[in-house]
Structure formats: structure tokens, C-alpha cells
Design a protein around this nucleic acid. Sequence first.
DNA 1: TTCTTTCATTGACAGCAGAAAAGAACAACC
DNA 2: GGTTGTTCTTTTCTGCTGTCAATGAAAGAA
Lengths: 395, 395
Amino acid sequence: MFPAMRSTPPREAAPATTPAASLVFTTLLSHGPLTRAEIGRRTMLSAAAVTKAVRPLMEVGYLVEGADDGARPALGRPANPVRVDAGRALFIGIKVTGDEIIAVLADLCCRIRVARHVRLTARGPQAVLPRITALVQELLTEADGFGVRVRGLGIAVSGDVDRTRGVVRYSPFLEWRDIALAEIVETATGLPVTVDNDVRALTVAEQWFGAGVGLSHFALVTVGAGIGCGLVVHGRVVSGAHGVAGEIGHLSIDPLGPPCHCGNNGCVEAIAADPAILREVRKATGKPVHTAAEALALAHEGDPGVRDVYARAGEAIGRAIGSVVNVLGPERVIISGEGLAAYDLFAEGIRDALAASAFGAAAQCDVMTRPLPFEEWARGAAATAIQSFIGSDTY
Amino acid sequence: MFPAMRSTPPREAAPATTPAASLVFTTLLSHGPLTRAEIGRRTMLSAAAVTKAVRPLMEVGYLVEGADDGARPALGRPANPVRVDAGRALFIGIKVTGDEIIAVLADLCCRIRVARHVRLTARGPQAVLPRITALVQELLTEADGFGVRVRGLGIAVSGDVDRTRGVVRYSPFLEWRDIALAEIVETATGLPVTVDNDVRALTVAEQWFGAGVGLSHFALVTVGAGIGCGLVVHGRVVSGAHGVAGEIGHLSIDPLGPPCHCGNNGCVEAIAADPAILREVRKATGKPVHTAAEALALAHEGDPGVRDVYARAGEAIGRAIGSVVNVLGPERVIISGEGLAAYDLFAEGIRDALAASAFGAAAQCDVMTRPLPFEEWARGAAATAIQSFIGSDTY
DNA sequence: TTCTTTCATTGACAGCAGAAAAGAACAACC
DNA sequence: GGTTGTTCTTTTCTGCTGTCAATGAAAGAA
């Protein structure tokens, strides 16, 4: 209906041509194998529309009729479940941090096939971009081994990213400003490139392939070096009018709390992010603790001061989640991030603070945790590439 | 496309039959008179589609060709602006509070033609419902004087309201639980009834007819007896998965702050809502101050203790807005409510606290105030009725 | 007067999805 | 074993919506 945003390169063989086809495809991606009748019920499409949407997708091989091996209702004509052929297409997802690049090769169902990471010594675009293209080439040759083409590349970067234009407006960690990343990498690699904020990319992965499947309102909270939050409202990822959203790390929880690098006092990030926890642990123990793992070990040894630091951090996170819950009323909050390793220490604080701050029915919100392997961020980037490939209007 | 939610009563003469017609109508409602060419540009519809959408609407009189009397470009064929005939239909909006009912008769452009209010002595449904129907009858006879039919009725109630089912799930102020308000009033009055939460209704009015026109992301903050917030994300009003959203009144700003009726400490509402301000003013002055007007008068007389109370309240509001801005990144925040009378006293606190807490580009958010006449809440209810009448898919 | 420019309308056309009916594949029942 | 019933799936037909391209309309400019 609308002309393509960027014209190069041509998206040959876009799988879904009509809105209905797109809808059917995304439904199948998220909800495993389904019979055509079931697809019709879920998408509110007529049976005829489903048939007409499925056929061309099966002809080009993105969908296959596959065994559901689930319990059948034993009455009426047996159903023929349809599923996405995960191996029919590959995607590359890349996450760029201040000191490393993580890259994965993922299939159409966003399962990781190959993972790579390289350390970075310099973070300027001139230094990083060649490393990205080299890594992409490496994964492209890997993909040849599967005999399947790579159909898209997603790149996740922290900071202010304009996905529709493919531009990194400002990334504090990388010290990048106004880099037309999608365009550059597209010309360098020949792949369709999608660029997005890292937390949003992770949120997309959860929305389509994770704990957010089927929910139109949820929040994804990441705990680690920073505290972030991805939001899905009305079934769409929230980007904010100025590219900033979900900045719960800088909610000020306590006006008398420790100063934050943002200039404010008592930000969640100044209490519960890794650097803040390390600082407090050093203060409590007097020991030169320099990694999250060391701090965690001390806590697990039972050091009461250290445990107290984690308890306070958990409380701050819980209150931040409480703010999100009160403001948006999501159906579910997914907690993830490297900091999840300390979840047992956070848990009580989070639960209590959330219970205290959630107002009324907002407290019915379901809170769950999800482990975050280090490739997960890159997988999120791959998910954005898959999303672009499908041509979903969810974005 | 979908079957009607409730079948009774039949929505005769629904103005917009096709999605395009609905889009054109809402565009014209929000953006005054427009030429057909301009409508096409704004809606991304072809000129042909606009012509075909406009014609039937003009035939039944909802749209008229009217003078734009604006500057014309002086080149090419002169344009024929089209506008909504505000007087072609009337709507009733009703706001129910704990101690009064406010009702307005509004035209299709949501301009108030008649306003009424009655005090309530009891707040149970058995007591209130007859008053509502009586008030509706009164306004219906008023409408006869205009020679135009009333096409819909909107009711706004504070608390947890399920608009799609027309049910008040729980209203703390009214002490109502699970009242099928829409159904009851529909059968009593014969009008199509829309029931919604009061803050959301006000948000709808701003979105279609106020300072939120054309914005897909904004927040409406109401200050007064309570502190509330309506949110529009991706062009749609946020209701939350459990009917609760925008509860910024119960964001906990200061763990050491005054206790709130919700059980938590330092809630915004426990610092900046009218009752909290009165309590603090009494504490500061020792005088038996019992109304917001008295407190305001003291502040304007220059009492430093009282001014300080307002300053702290302003700061709390500013930090609450900061939270919303950080979480959602809206394009604009509209501050309104009865408490706006004291805005000059709040202003500095709001501005400073917001500037301190807004992170990065989120600070670009535009903050503005809007006076709130007492009928405005009822006008919001009328706006929801108009929205239902148009059959907009925005909801 | 004729050209240019912009606005508006018309009729033909293509695409998408729904309705209804037919076909397919099984279980249960007599 | 045939019939009936149930559910899934496909086919055919139809209606509707919005786009395209061509045409007409109304002004100012050359």
C-alpha cells in the first residue's frame, strides 16, 4: 500500500504479499504448528482467506505441513497442521557494545545456529564498521554450509536509534552520532539491514518468540550494567516520540539516594545497576571488589552487608517495575539481563516493593524472569531482521 | 468487518460505513475545514478515495462545503474546503462524581451547547441511575429546541471501567461494583451509551478536539482532588491489561513521605492532591483551612509556609511527569484539572523537577497547561459518545 | 486567448476477503 | 458394511474498496 521506505536493495521474494498473508505468517511464527482452522479462529480471518494465504507461502517453502503430534479431538476430519519451515531462511543478528560485537546466525524461527563474538579495541565507527562487515562475511560463509540464503541482517545498538530511517542518532556508550548505519552496512554487505535499539530488539524477540507471545501489553526489564525496559503497548513496541522510551533506569526512586551520572539523585541505575552494586559492596566490605561475579560470590557466602546491598537494589528494581505497572498496566513483566544471576538475592526486594507500589488491579500483573544468555541480545537483533523480512505492520 | 459488540439499539445512520470514510470524518473533526486534496494528503488516501468517502457524508448532511476564509495559494483551481456540520447531531455527556452529576449537551464538534449539574445525596446505583435518566430526559427536551436528534450518550465514571462491555467494574468513590451501566441506561433512555473512565474520556476529548490533535503519543495529567493521567500511545488511548493505567497518583516519590490511603508512603497523591495540600497547609499555619480556595488564598497572600507546601507539591507532580516522560517518551504533556488554579505556585517546582528527571531526548517533550472548566469532564464523556458514533477504530 | 497549475470527478480495474457450498477424511452407530 | 455426523479444507462466486489514469473545472499568468 505504501511505497517502500528505502528502495535499495530490492526485497526479493518477500514472503507475505497481502496483509492476511503477513498476519498468518506471524501467527504461525509465534504459535508453533496450527491447523488452518485454528489460524482462522486466531486471526479472525475466514477459512477461505487462510487457505489463500497459506498456499503461496507453502509453494515457496516458507510453510510446510508438519506433524503436530498433539492430541487430536478424535472427531471429524483430521486436521492438517501447518508450520514455519525454520530452516528455509537464515538471518544474522548483531549486537554492538562498547567493547565487543556479538553476532549470531539464526533461522526463521529465531533459533540460534551459530554464535560469534569479537572484542573491540576502539569504538569509533571507522573502527567498528569493518569489524561488523567482516563478521557478517564470516557468518555468510557459515550460512553457505547450511545451503540456505541469509535474507536479512539486524543490528542492535544501545542509545537513541531511529529504526525507520536506519540511523543511530546518538549512542553514549559507542560515542556515535548520526550514523546512517543501515545504509552503510547495506551497501557493504548487500543484505537488507534493520537497525534498532538493543532493548527494543530484545523486546521484539520476546514479543514474537518468547514470553511476550500473544500479549498486547507487556514490559521487558533488563538488569545488568544498566537498567532498561522495553514496552509493548497495543501490540506494538514503544519507541517514544523522540526515540527515548522505557528509561526506567533513570526513574528517581529516592531523592536522598546516591548521585547518578545523569545528574539526578537516587536513580534506579544508581542503586541497582552493576557499577552501583559494586560501589556499595566495596563500601560495605572494604574489599576491592571489581566484578559482578565477585560481588555475587560474597553475597552467596552470606556476607550480611553485601546481601543488604542486593536487597536494596532489588527494592529499587521492584519500585521501578511498580512505576511501569502503575503507568501502563501491562499484562506481564519479564525480568531479564545479565544481572539475573543475582535474582535470588533481588527476588524478595522486587516482590515486596512491587506489591507495595502496584495500585489496585495493576497488581494482577504477572511477573516472571527469563535467563539471558550472552547471545540473546544478538538474537534480538535477528528478530528485528525477521520482522522486517515478514513485512509485519506491527512496527 | 466485525459484528457489532452489542446489538441493541441499532445504530441507525452510522455516518461512516467504510474505513476510509471513518478516517476522513475523524480527520475533518480534528483538523477543521480542509480541502479534499489536503484530506488526501493527510490520510494517505488517493484523491478518488476522498471524493468517494466525502460524497455520501455530504448527502446525509454530516459534512458541508464551507468557507475556509483562509489564505489561498492563488494558483490553480481554487479549493473547495469541506467541514463537519457541527449542528447536524447532538450528544450528551455525563460525568458522575461522588457528590454530583454534571451533564452537557454537545454538538458534533464537541462544543458544549447546554450544561447542567445536580448534587447527589446518595451514591448507590439505585439512587444515582434515576437521576442520570432524568437528566438525560431533560437534555433531550433541550435538544428538541435545536431541532436535532441526540445520537449518543457518554458516561464518565472514575475507577475501573470496561468500555467495550460498558461495565463499571469498580468505582471506589461511588462504591459501585460490576454495574452494567451501558446496558441499563440504554434500555432506560433508548440512546446508544458509551461508558468510560473519566480520565480516559478527558483524554479522548483532548485527542480529538484539544491539545492532543494530531499527536500519536501524549499524556494528559489531571491535578485536583486526585492526580490522574491519561495516555495516548500509537494514537490509541491506553487502558491497561486490567483496566488500570496512568495511575501516576500512586507513584511513590519519596519513601519517607507522608502515608497514602493506598498503603504506601510518599505517593504523589499524598503530597500534591487537594486533601494532602490542605493537610499540610493546616499543619504549616495552624489555621482550620478546609477548601482548596482558602489554601490558595493564603498562598497568594504570601504566606511562606503555604507557598512551600505548594512548591513541594509542584515538585512531586514534576517528578511524576518525569516518570511518565522517561517511560513513554510522549511528544507532549498536557496538565489540567481543578488544581490548575494553583499552577502559578506549582509551575516552578514542576519545571525544575521535570528538567532534573527527564532523561536525554525525553526532555524535548512539550509541557503545556490547559484550563479545565467544570463541565470539561462531561464534555470528555460526550467525546467518547462521538467516537462511538463515528465508529472509529482508534479505540 | 492560450497555457499552466491545482483541485475535483469519473469510470475502469485489480485485489482482497467473505459466504456458501462442495469435497475430504475420519469416528460412531446401527 | 453402509449410513450418519462432525470437522477440516478447498473452490467458486460475489461484493466491496481503493487505486489508476484520464477528464473536466476554475482560476491566474504569459
